[in-house]
Design a protein around this nucleic acid. Structure first.
Length: 440
RNA sequence: GGGCGCGUAGCUCAGUUGGCAGAGCAACUGGCUUUUAACCAGUAGGUCCCAGGUUCGAGCCCUGGCGCGCUCACCA
C-alpha cells in the first residue's frame, strides 16, 4: 500500500503510524524486529511523508486493524510540515488557498468533492438514459447572450476582436435544437464579472439542457426526477439537511404562482405600475432611475422569495422579464417559465423556449435598447436567423450545479463546494512593463 | 465598491492598564514493543500582515495600505 503518514507514535522499538490514501486510513505498525534494514533510518520519517508499505494485515492487542510492515519505502518527502493534528486546518483562507492540504487534513472536505464528482456522474447517466446527448459549445463568444450579467472580456489577436467569456451557453444549445439534435445538454463553466459572495463565484458550473417537443412542464418533471435521484444516490435519502432545516427532495415539488404570490404579499397586480412603484417606495427599494420591470422583480424578491423554503417551482413569470421564453397562451402577459428554489436560493430556471424569430428579434431589440450603458449589448442576429429555419417547440432548463451541491452536501458557502474558489492572489503581479531589469 | 470583524511560531491559539514574545501540536535530541490527539525529559523555532505616527517605551493606541471572513449592492 502507499499513502501519507498522518502521525507517528513512537515507542522505541515499535512505532504506530496511521497512513491514509483516498480510500481511508489504516494503522501501520513498524517493529524493529521486522524491519532490520529500515530501522536505522526511522528518525527520518515525519508526519506528512508519502510512504510505500509492504506487510501483513493483523491486529494489535486492542483489536485495531494494523498492517505490520515488513518493508518501508519513502516515496516522497514532505518538506513542509503538516497542519496541527487535532484541529487540522481551520482558517478558511488557508483552507481555500491550500486545498491540496485541506483535502487530506480535514476529513469532511474530501467527502464533499467525492459527492460533487458523483453528482456529475449521476446527472450524466440520468440524462443519457433519457436519450440526451452531451455537447460542448463555445466558451469564447463574439456576442453576449442568454443572460444578463457583466462579462469578462478578452481579445483575439489574430482576428483583432474582443471576445466575451460566456455568461450562458443557452443560445448555442438552442441552435443545436434547430440542428435536429432534439435532446442536448452541456455541463460547463459560465463566467460572470460580478461580485463574490457566499453563493457567487466568478466562474461557476451550469447544467443546461434542451428537449424538442417539450415545454416547461416537462422541465419540471426532469428537475424533480433529477433532484430526487441526486439526493438518493448521494445521501441515501430524499431528506436533505441544509442550514438547520430539512428539505424533502421527493417529487412532486410544490408549485406557486409568481403573480398570485405577488398579489398576496403586496396587495396589487404585478403590472399595476403606479401601485407597484408605491409599494417599492414603502419597501425602500425605489430608485427613480430604475426600469419598471426590474423594480417589480425587486419587489417580488423582497416580499416573496424570502418566504420560499422549497423545493418549490415558482411559475407564471411576467413575460417582460423573460426575453427568451414563450408567452403563455392563456395570458399573454405571462411566460411559460419557472424557477426552482431551495433554502432561499435559486437553483434552476426553465422555460418553454421562444421559437418565433420575429418575436425573438423584437424582444432582443427591446432588451438592447433598455440595457445598462456600461454593458455592451448587441442583438444576436445569427441566433434569430437560426430560428428562421424553424426551431421545434422546446423546453429548456438551467441548473446551478454549485448551489445544488451546497444544498446536497450541507455546505454554507459556494467556496466549500469549489476545489479552488476565486481568491485574490497573495502577491500582486508586477505590472507588465518589461523594462528589462529582471534577473533569472 | 460600502459597512462590520479578523491578521501573533509551520498549524491551533493566548497575550492583563502601553512595560522582557507565550502555550499546545508539528520539528529536532534522548528514553520507552501495543498506542489511538500515546507518554516522559530536553532543544530550537518570531518582519507580532505592511508603512507611517503618538510615546521614555507599541503585539496592544492613532492614520493609511494589503489580505481574508461576514454582510449590503450588482448577479445566478
Amino acid at each position: 500500500m502507499a499513502g501519507r503518514v498522518m502521525g507517528l507514535r513512537d515507542f522505541g522499538k515499535l512505532i504506530f503510524a496511521p497512513v491514509r490514501d483516498r480510500s481511508g486510513r489504516i494503522q501501520v505498525g513498524l517493529q524493529k524486529g521486522k524491519l532490520a534494514d529500515w530501522w536505522p533510518d526511522r528518525k527520518l520519517l515525519d508526519g506528512g511523508d508519502l510512504v510505500g508499505i509492504t506487510g501483513e494485515l493483523g491486529h494489535t492487542q486492542k483489536g485495531e486493524p494494523t498492517v505490520w510492515a515488513t518493508d518501508v519505502q519513502l516515496l516522497s518527502k514532505a518538506v513542509a510540515p503538516p497542519p496541527e493534528k487535532w484541529h487540522g486546518l481551520s482558517d478558511k483562507e488557508t483552507r481555500y488557498r491550500r486545498r491540496y492540504v485541506d483535502l487530506w487534513a480535514s476529513d469532511d472536505v474530501l467527502d464533499v468533492f467525492l459527492k460533487r464528482s458523483k453528482a456529475l456522474s449521476v446527472i450524466r447517466h440520468f440524462l443519457e438514459d433519457q436519450g440526451y446527448l452531451e455537447v460542448e459549445t463555445p466558451i469564447l463568444h463574439p456576442i453576449m447572450g442568454g443572460a444578463t450579467a457583466k462579462p469578462f472580456v478578452t481579445k483575439h489577436n489574430a482576428l483583432g476582436m474582443d471576445l466575451f467569456l460566456r455568461i450562458a451557453p443557452e443560445l448555442y444549445l438552442k441552435r443545436l435544437i434547430v440542428g435536429g439534435l432534439e435532446r442536448v445538454f452541456e455541463i460547463g463553466r459560465n463566467f460572470r464579472n460580478e461580485g463574490l459572495s457566499i453563493r457567487h463565484n466568478p466562474e461557476f458550473t451550469m447544467l443546461e439542457l434542451y428537449e424538442a417537443q417539450a415545454d416547461y412542464r416537462r422541465m419540471m418533471e426532469i428537475t424533480e426526477q433529477m433532484f430526487e435521484r441526486l439526493a438518493r444516490e448521494l445521501n441515501g435519502t430524499t431528506q436533505v439537511e441544509f442550514r438547520g432545516e430539512t428539505y424533502s427532495f421527493e417529487a412532486p415539488f410544490e408549485r406557486v404562482s409568481y403573480t398570485q404570490r405577488f398579489r398576496e404579499e403586496n396587495g396589487c397586480e404585478f403590472d399595476d405600475e403606479p401601485a407597484v412603484r408605491e409599494r417599492a417606495k414603502e419597501l425602500r427599494l425605489d430608485h427613480e432611475s430604475d426600469e419598471y420591470w426590474k423594480l417589480m422583480n425587486d419587489v417580488f424578491e423582497e416580499t416573496v422569495e424570502s418566504t420560499l423554503r422549497g423545493p418549490v417551482f415558482v411559475t407564471d413569470y411576467p413575460v417582460a422579464i423573460c426575453p427568451l421564453a414563450k408567452a403563455s397562451p392563456d395570458d399573454p402577459r405571462l411566460a411559460e417559465r419557472f424557477e426552482v428554489f431551495v433554502g432561499g436560493m435559486e437553483l434552476g430556471n426553465a422555460f418553454s423556449e421562444l421559437n418565433d424569430p420575429a418575436e425573438q428579434l423584437r424582444r432582443f431589440e427591446e432588451q438592447v435598447a433598455s440595457k445598462d450603458p456600461e454593458t455592451p449589448g448587441e442583438v444576436d442576429l445569427d441566433y434569430v436567423e437560426a430560428l428562421e429555419y424553424g426551431m421545434p417547440p422546446t423546453g429548456g432548463l438551467g441548473v446551478g450545479i454549485d448551489r445544488l451541491l451546497m444544498i446536497l452536501t450541507g455546505q454554507e458557502s459556494i467556496r466549500d463546494v469549489l476545489l479552488f474558489p476565486a481568491m485574490r492572489p497573495l502577491v500582486q503581479a508586477e505590472s507588465d512593463d518589461d523594462d528589462g531589469g529582471e534577473e533569472e
